[in-house]
Design a protein around this nucleic acid. Structure first.
Lengths: 232, 232
DNA sequence: CGATTAATTGACAAAACTCAATACGAGTGG
DNA sequence: CCACTCGTATTGAGTTTTGTCAATTAATCG
């Protein structure tokens, strides 16, 4: 593990799309929908870099985003995946400590943090909502810590598949937007271990994989069982 | 790893101490100092349980606290250690997903979350401060994820020692408040690996251990080097 | 199709875990 | 003050899981 692998590093996105509209007005979060500009990022584009000032807040419209941090020797940790509907960019106060990159072609609403804060100045509801977003991210980070700390490969993959299935609202079949390497770096495993574990699951009839990016959940109970160890 | 180990489980604390005073008025955080009641928890006492409604916010005065989550089969993950000056209890919105226990005899300021929120209602500065506390916790969680995800035992221990040294304001020598098992469960290692790695460090002249709970940092540069891999 | 990237598989090595024995250290009572 | 005890920490031997390196196979896109 000496060099960062398939890296023709993330390419800065310059193209800026239209300013589309959402007709939603339901929750407070959707101020982003109203105020945000929609941008397109092609696969592998850098949305923000490590150490970049945290000037914007984002919301995924379509596609997928990874939050990642790279070590000097090529090891990488992915801290989170963001899927359609997810907000991000609030996990930093001053500067970003992770980079964000689009995993595939992705549309993202972008709003200036200062605009959001100005809005929040007048609207107490707004602040609390943004804060609770941050709390949500913290809780995700904590449950990810559990996974990384003491789960074995099978438990990690099971948790990952169930999480993806839920967040992508997929009934029975998940279309993974990310390559195996991203999954590996998210779960703290190697690509080979991810691959072997998936193959194992397939042999055991727990899943099937018509193609590598599509996972059909054939025995959700088995996955739940592997995942439920942390029931508490 | 089938049974939770030395567990004569955490014992509920009932004793409630004095209402001491701090003369500080510097930052907003110190509203807790002004409003909080001081409680004493003896070693191993449960401050709050998993799934308990998050009714209070806490600040460590003296001693140390661990945030932990227990698996059905005895595996445990410690999510954070809280040391004097640290606030906690803001990482949950509705109910706690981790338990908090005192590691040694500990004094803690406790304030009702509702009181804090009432204060925050009037004081915009206050909300932002509480929020930024949460962001701080999130960032700690993220950097802990890095450690758990892709660092080897030496790197984990090095990071841990440096972090403790800094947070305890110890120049050259750290008095660890927690037993090896807690360190292991915090770092996602076994107690044996922690022990062996420390012994290794001692043989290499990186540290010395007059007694097991006291670690003298003899070669901080070596520790920094092991830790700095994630420089970026 | 062919070229190129992504994913899988195999053989082997290494790091960390397990189980078991031993040593240490703080506190207690003779 | 010294032995005893009990919880904590260390050490050793052997196993297991995951990682590494290298070779194949599968997908995707002109």
């Amino acid at each position: 593990m000496l060099q960062w692998r398939s890296a023709k590093g993330p390419t800065r996105n310059v193209g800026l799309g239209a300013f589309p509209r959402g007709t939603e007005t339901n929750a407070v979060a959707d101020v982003v929908d109203l105020m945000g500009a929609c941008m397109r990022f092609e696969r592998g584009a850098e949305i923000f870099a490590e150490n970049e000032p945290a000037e914007f807040v984002y919301k995924v419209v379509s596609g997928a985003v990874r939050l990642s941090k790279l070590m000097s020797d090529g090891r990488r940790q992915i801290g989170a995946f963001y899927l359609p509907g997810d907000m991000f960019g609030l996990e930093a106060d001053r500067a970003h400590s992770f980079a964000a990159e689009s995993i595939c072609d992705t549309r993202i609403l972008v709003v200036k943090r200062s605009a959001l804060m100005a809005e929040a100045e007048r609207d107490g509801e707004m602040v609390r909502h943004l804060w609770s977003q941050t709390v949500g991210h913290l809780q995700r980070a904590q449950s990810h810590m559990l996974l990384l700390g003491r789960k074995n490969a099978q438990e990690r993959i099971a948790a990952f598949l169930l999480d993806m299935a839920q967040r992508l609202h997929s009934a029975g079949s998940v279309a993974l937007p990310m390559p195996r390497q991203d999954i590996a770096d998210y779960l703290g495993l190697t690509i080979e271990t991810v691959s072997r574990t998936l193959t194992q699951f397939e042999r055991d009839g727990v899943i099937s994989m018509p193609v590598s990016r599509r996972i059909v959940l054939r025995n959700r109970a088995a996955l739940d069982k592997m995942n439920d160890v942390w029931s508490a």
